[in-house]
Computed example of a mutant assay.
Amino acid sequence: MGAIKIKPEFLSFGAEVKRLRLAAGLSQQQLADLVHVTRSYVAQVESGRTRCRRDFALRLDRALKSGVALVVAWDELLESIKSDKYPEFFANFPKAEQSATMLRAYEERVVHGLFQIEAYARILLNDDDALKNRLRRQEVLNRNPVPAVTVVMDETVLYREVGGKEVMKEQLEFLIQLSEREKTNIQIAPIQYIRNVWATFVIATLPDLRQVVYTAKAYGGETSSAPDDVALVNETMSALQAEALNVKDSRALIRRVIDEKWS
Rank of each mutant, 00 (worst) to 15 (best):
R210I: 01
F201L: 01
I188E: 01
I186H: 02
P145E: 13
P147L: 11
G220S: 12
E155V: 13
K183I: 02
D129Q: 06
Q116T: 11
E173I: 12
E161G: 05
L131D: 07
L175N: 09
L135D: 07
K165P: 07
E139I: 12
L135E: 11
V140Q: 10
I203F: 03
T205G: 00
Q192F: 04
K132F: 13
A189Y: 00
R195F: 01
E173D: 11
L125E: 07
K183Y: 05
V202C: 05
E161N: 13
D129P: 00
N133R: 15
Q138N: 09
A130F: 11
R134I: 13
P190A: 04
Q187N: 03
Q187G: 00
S179C: 02
E170Q: 11
N185G: 03
V110Y: 15
Y159W: 10
N196E: 13
A204L: 00
V202D: 03
Y214W: 05
A119V: 00
Y193F: 07
P190F: 05
V149N: 02
K183A: 01
Y120C: 04
I176D: 04
V149W: 04
I123Q: 14
F201D: 01
K217Q: 15
N142Y: 15
L124M: 10
R134A: 12
I176F: 04
R181Y: 03
V157H: 04
V157Y: 03
I188H: 00
A119H: 02
E166T: 11
R122D: 14
R136N: 15
M153N: 00
L125I: 05
Y214E: 11
Q116P: 05
P145L: 13
E118R: 14
T215D: 01
Y120A: 03
Q138E: 12
N133K: 13
R134D: 06
M168W: 04
R210P: 02
S179Q: 07
Q138S: 08
S179D: 11
V146R: 15
Y159I: 05
N185W: 00
V152Q: 09
A189Q: 08
V157F: 10
G113K: 05
Q192T: 07
L141V: 12
